[in-house]
């Protein structure tokens, strides 16, 4: 986390999925960065995403062991309603049943005592 991305994780702590928005031209961008690649403006704020999206791509991890994870587990690239994409785990579903185009919604899961992650679960389309 750094000065460019702190707002995202501060949002996650408040159960908000935040997307950086250019203050000059309104373009949304993720992952965050200090300058808008469309208009080179340094001014930005954020919008709070609806939390709805679709699985754009995904993987199911088997090997090697990853500390804190119980394989197999699914990691998806989720395309948000707002148009940007974000990576996160898909939970509350057998990884074998995850598919591209599947509607998902964000959920905020406390993974350790210290921090929260934005994860994804199936939603009715």
């Amino acid at each position: 986390m750094n000065a460019d991305s702190a707002f995202f994780w501060e949002g996650v702590e408040k159960d908000e999925l935040r997307i950086q928005r250019c203050q000059s031209c309104g373009t949304l961008r993720h992952p965050p960065r200090p300058m808008c690649s469309s208009c080179q403006s340094l001014g930005w704020n954020h919008v709070t995403a609806s939390g709805r999206g679709e699985v754009y791509s995904f993987v199911v991890h088997h090997h090697p062991p990853v500390p804190g994870f119980d394989p197999p587990f699914a990691v998806a690239l989720v395309e948000l309603e707002e148009g940007t994409r974000v990576v996160g785990n898909v939970i509350e579903i057998d990884p074998a049943n995850v598919c591209i185009g599947m509607p998902v919604e964000v959920c905020f899961v406390r993974v350790h005592d210290e921090w929260t992650l934005p994860l994804w679960r199936p939603r009715a389309s």
Binding site: S57, F58, V59, V75, L117
Partner: peptide, 17 residues
Amino acid sequence: PFGLVTPAAWVAMFARR
């Protein structure tokens, strides 16, 4: 934070699409 930590996993995401 989501366990996407290996070269195989990074490439697999492209491959699936």
